[in-house]
Nucleic acid binder design. Structure first.
Length: 426
RNA sequence: GCGACUGUAGCCUAGUGGUUAAGGCCCCGGCUUGUGGUGCCGGUUAUCGGGGGUUCGAAUCCCCUCAGUCGCCCCA
């Protein structure tokens, strides 16, 4: 009998971890709210066809990383590997092209990819993302990037690098790919096996190969000059220049990276990535860009709906932050009489305090006080037999050991004074 | 899918061929049946990741497998 454990590449989030998540989620929701971005929640699974068409048949995600299964009606379903395709599907399905432009949506939730786990990569991971529909301006790209950048600042992340590039339109890329193939046709044998495969499937990927021999090859003329020349149309080049100008105006530091090629098929014009040096091999915290054409491709009628957006990896991002101190307990109710204890713990909770008690049946006050201490309570309320008989409560301050005896009716008011004071000390 | 390293109680660790696998933390109880933190005493928790092999004898050596970690590929 093997022990049951969480599936490979998945993770339980235990109470000590949760505080950081809830805090980060709250910061993000607040940032989005102030930018007039609204949440959308789509299903965790969709028709497999959606991801094939949306993410791209040639991508690794679709080819080898999808959790695909057949449902009871012999429909092929897939656990979402990313959320953009689903959001676009929802945009089309609900006629959001009739909503006031731009439509700005954010999402937050688990994604699933069948991959070999390593640092910063799991089979179930969480992304938060932004999608902006209906505007094809550099201004919209700039706002999107700025929101990502500011979100990361608000979370207190440091040592981040924003890399940005212009991928042009699909036809520009097609032309560039052909040119690249022509330049490298005769040196194929000198390249690594990965690059030889990329030559067929995705030539742009060859450019950020880490093999020194391949890099040397790409530095030679005339390949070098060909690579460095912006292959995109004048329109796309003007768009990109404007994005950069707006980032300059907002004092967002960036690095132009001609080697930055995002893997998903749907990107057009602007692409960017935000990385951290403190993450190990999987250093991208946020990735995104413009994806004009996807909405139409996923059935958005005749209208070409331009769009831009990004996604962040929660786990990667949170691993860069310090876990906060656990929240303590205000009150621990100590009594050898269960109805009395239950009544007092309920009453203090209703009054707004974090309160707990001992439901194990232990009568000894010493044992119960030991619990109060372990849980880090500020104050213990002692309700023994003599207090019950006299209608009094002993309020014991755990840190100092001092205690005071009060009439039952005065206790809540006294807790209000005392705990206001202690909470500040926490 | 490929490669490297690592698997001993809930957690950390000792033990590298020889009787019932040792210690610390945590948890529970006692010293203290109305007062916590420190101390002392006691207790629960391990088919040594799993399977097979070598051996009189395996946590220890060999093979397979599973899991974890990191890396490649790719991505958040």
């Amino acid at each position: 009998m093997t022990k049951l454990s969480a599936p490979k590449g998945t993770h339980d989030l235990l109470p000590p971890d949760i505080a950081l998540w809830q805090w980060a989620e709250a910061v993000m929701r607040d940032s989005f709210a102030r930018a007039n971005v609204h949440e959308i929640r789509t299903p965790l699974f969709e028709a497999t066809e959606l991801f094939k068409r949306g993410v791209g048949e040639t991508t690794d995600i679709v080819n080898k990383e999808m959790y695909t299964f057949e449902d009871g009606g012999q429909r092929s379903m897939t656990l979402r590997p990313e959320n953009t395709a689903s959001v676009v599907r929802a945009y089309n399905q609900h006629g959001m092209d009739r909503w006031p432009k731009p439509v700005k949506l954010y999402y937050m939730g688990p994604m699933f990819r069948y991959e070999r786990p390593q640092q910063g990569r799991q089979r179930q991971f969480h992304q938060v993302g932004l999608e902006v529909f209906g505007v094809d301006t550099a201004a919209s790209d700039a706002e999107s990037i700025l929101l990502a950048w500011q979100l990361l600042q608000a979370l207190g992340l440091k040592d981040l690098t924003l890399k940005i590039n212009n991928m042009g339109m699909p036809e520009d890329r097609h032309r560039f790919r052909q040119g690249l193939r022509d330049h490298l046709k005769d040196q194929l044998g000198a390249l690594c096996s990965d690059c030889q495969a990329r030559y067929e499937t995705n030539p742009l990927r060859m450019l950020d190969c880490k093999n020194p021999d391949c890099q040397a090859m790409y530095q030679k003329e005339p390949i070098h000059t060909y690579i460095r020349t912006d292959f995109s149309s004048p329109d796309a080049q003007a768009h990109f220049a404007e994005v950069l100008a707006l980032l300059d105006a907002m004092a967002v530091p960036y690095t132009r990276d001609p080697m930055l090629v995002r893997g998903l098929d749907y990107y057009t014009k602007t692409v960017f990535e935000i990385t951290s040096d403190n993450l190990g091999a999987q250093s991208a915290v946020c990735g995104g860009g413009r994806y004009n054409g996807l909405v139409k491709q996923l059935g958005g009628g005749n209208n070409d709906v331009p769009a831009t957006g990004w996604a962040m990896g929660m786990e990667r991002l949170l691993s860069l932050l310090e876990p906060p101190k656990p929240q303590g307990l205000d009150v621990y109710v100590v009594s050898d009489d269960i109805p009395t204890a239950l009544q007092w713990v309920t009453q203090t909770r209703q009054a707004g305090f974090r309160a707990d008690w001992d439901p194990t049946g232990r009568k000894a006050l010493g044992k119960q006080l030991a619990q109060a201490d372990k849980l880090g309570a500020c104050v213990a309320l002692l309700l023994g037999e003599s207090e019950r008989n006299s209608g009094q409560v002993i309020v014991k301050h755990l840190a100092s050991g001092e205690q005071e005896t009060l009439a039952a009716g005065e206790v809540l008011a006294r807790l209000g004074q005392v705990l206001h004071h202690t909470r500040v000390c926490l």
